[in-house]
Write a protein that binds this DNA or RNA. Structure first.
Length: 593
RNA sequence: GGGCCGGUAGCUCAGUCAGGGAGAGCGACGGACUCUUAAUCCGUCGGUCGGGGGUUCAAAUCCCUCCCGGCCCGCCA
């Protein structure tokens, strides 16, 4: 067994190892290393976070990075189990400023029962009441949230509560070994943590009186599986959580290991073969965890992979600063496959999730998809990468849309994703991806945003067809699925309030003041519209009218946009007015309402 | 101080691991569609590949060095 430190930057090239098998998809590089260990099946891929704050999009790295590695291994015929541990025996150390309800709404601490949280500082998350009252505990609320997010993205994952592992005795054996030779445990960890001294015992009991996690262990009885403790104060950042002073006895099920031991212990208990983690762990917990795994627990640590953190709209994710976005929110803006595509990109590269530029991300996905199908206009997208990664990106979508007979259904509101389990289903769906889903249609995202101003689905479809974005012989499901993007892009335009956020000012006329010549021209145009003409004719007449009155065409259009949208620009005006009810258009052009 | 990521067209980025033609999208600009205003189509402009040095017949790519930006590195997790 080697105790040499492993560079967790797994995706970085090591010129020494002469890596002949360079892959276009990073997940295959990781899979190579897992395969090289001859893992037992199922291969276990883990992720996990502590339930503090809001489980935002950045935290989804813990699930999505593992997903692609899991799929790579399934492609190679391995059975894979992906688990996510909610580290919910951790104590609540401070009050989160923001929380998220199960529907994905972010709320301020003040909007929930903050007092109930405050009274429970120091207790395990699973012993803290759910501030929303919807789940058994704060910890379970969090677990449910993560489970829902994984479902929405179609990732099959076992959400495992750390508390349950303790309560079920899963940690007992490893805890006993640790506490049987406390000195050895101290020796290994000491170089990594200054606080490790002769008093240090790697176990934190839960006080039977006050329910808080304590740090002062007075004695250990490995045979009996108990510790004696005193409930003393614990430091949590810049504040102190007071202990109650109680002295008592706790079993190994009634407490927790400190993180530096708990993480490797999870590897042992769950048989973890691979775990991705953020770079904060790369230089802290990983080196010590690896050392503990080899030299204290005597197990092989998992294949690591550091992922870069990404930013949101240019700034770090921060729930306290309000710079967060949840999976549910994202899926109101883009399809799940587009989000999965985002996570399929190189994890070793820091990138920004820019909501204002989701049209770019979506456009890149569309080209990626076209590259897979060998269609034109794939441009910058690497066909080899698309060939390899697209099935993993799209499979959960196809799973949600197609039934066992291969018939597509687009029903409900989306997002459409379903976790795929089992080799047979995988193969069946890959067949559908190859032949079937290739009939899908995609509206350019900004075009979809423009269509958002027409409420009538029939109009949306007609315009999309007129503009050539939907093939004449497109199957119904493909049309429905393509048009579903309109709702997403509409949300987007509304959320970022950009130039696509057209809103017909129907109820009330915008505050307008026009030059008399413009007013005369508008009256003329109103007369023309009143005669009853189609959109194209109206469009032409706008030009004619402007010229007839010696007006700058651009200014005249601007007047129209001002009148209907209270903006300087908008959709192609003639066809749009042609779709509205004539009486309204005429009255508005005459500035009568 | 140490580590990692990034610095390629106005913007967002691919290309860097296997050195050889500097690319895409968006934007801008021009044109087509009886009609400058979403869309579509055609075209054009646009880059000292952060700076410097080195290796090489050849460097965005390999090596060294420096600069700029971002993040991480007590405890906790």
């Amino acid at each position: 067994m080697s105790a040499d430190a492993t560079d967790p930057y797994t995706l970085h090239e090591d010129p020494e190892d002469g890596d002949e098998d360079h892959h276009v998809f990073w997940a295959d590089e990781v899979a190579d290393q897992i395969e090289a260990r001859n893992p037992d099946e199922p291969v276990v891929i883990k992720g996990g976070i502590s339930p503090s704050g809001v489980p935002h999009l950045g935290n989804m790295n813990e699930i999505m990075r593992g997903y692609f590695v899991a799929e790579a291994l399934r492609d190679r015929g391995y059975e894979v189990r992906q688990v996510f541990t909610t580290d919910d025996r951790d104590p609540l150390r401070k009050l989160p400023r923001k929380l998220a309800d199960l529907d994905g709404n972010i709320v301020d601490l003040g909007d929930v029962d903050a007092g109930a949280l405050g009274r429970n500082l120091g207790k395990p998350y699973t012993d803290v009441p759910d501030p929303f009252g919807c789940c058994d505990s704060y910890g379970e609320h969090f677990s449910n949230f993560v489970r829902r997010a994984a479902d929405q993205l179609g990732v099959p994952i076992d959400v495992v509560s750390n508390t349950e592992l303790y309560e079920d005795g899963e940690f007992e054996d490893v805890t006993r070994r640790l506490l049987s030779d406390v000195e050895h445990a101290r020796e290994v960890l000491a170089p990594y943590q200054d606080k490790v001294d002769e008093e240090y015992v790697p176990f934190n009991p839960i006080c039977e009186d006050c329910g808080k996690i304590t740090e002062t262990v007075l004695s250990v009885d490995p045979e009996a599986g108990t510790v004696e403790y005193a409930c003393t104060d614990i430091e949590a950042g810049d504040r102190t959580i007071e202990g109650c002073g109680h002295q008592g006895t706790a079993t190994f099920r009634e407490g927790k290991l400190p993180w530096r031991f708990e993480w490797p212990a999870q590897w042992e208990i769950l048989g973890v073969d691979h775990e991705p983690f953020g770079k904060d762990h790369a230089e802290g917990s990983w080196p010590s965890g690896e050392d503990v795994a080899w030299n204290v627990l005597g197990i092989e640590p998992p294949v690591p992979m550091v992922y870069e953190w990404f930013t949101l709209n240019g700034d770090p994710f921060s729930s306290s600063a309000g710079n967060v976005i949840l999976v549910g929110e994202v899926l109101e803006l883009i399809e799940p496959e587009v989000l999965r595509y985002f996570f399929a990109k190189d994890p070793s590269r820091a990138r920004d999730f820019d909501v204002a530029e989701l049209d770019h991300l979506t456009g890149a996905f569309d080209r990626f998809e076209r590259a897979y199908y060998g269609e034109p206009d794939a441009d910058d997208q690497d066909p080899e990468f698309a060939e390899r990664a697209y099935p993993d990106v799209i499979r959960p979508t196809v799973a949600a849309l197609v039934d066992e007979e291969g018939v597509f259904h687009v029903e409900g509101d989306g997002p459409w994703s379903r976790a795929v389990v089992g080799t047979e289903e995988r193969e069946r769906l890959d067949g559908v991806v190859e032949a079937g889903f290739d009939r899908r249609e995609r509206l350019p995202y900004t075009f979809a945003a423009v269509l958002g101003m027409a409420d009538d689905p029939a109009i949306r479809e007609q315009v999309a067809r007129d503009e050539g974005h939907v093939a004449e012989d497109a199957p119904d499901w493909a049309v429905d699925y393509a048009l579903a993007r309109v709702g997403l892009a509409e949300h987007w335009a509304d959320r970022v309030d950009n130039e696509f956020n057209y809103e017909l000012k129907r109820a009330e006329m915008p505050d307008v003041a026009f030059d008399p010549r413009v007013e005369t021209a508008l009256d003329d145009l109103a007369d023309f519209v009143a005669e009853g003409h189609d959109g194209e004719a109206i469009q032409g007449e706008i030009y004619q009218t402007a010229r007839r009155h010696d007006l700058d065409v651009g200014d005249f259009f601007a007047a129209g946009y001002r009148l209907f949208f209270d903006q300087e620009q908008g959709p192609k005006l003639g066809p749009f007015l042609g779709k509205l009810d004539r009486e309204f258009v005429v009255r508005r052009l005459r500035r009568e309402e």
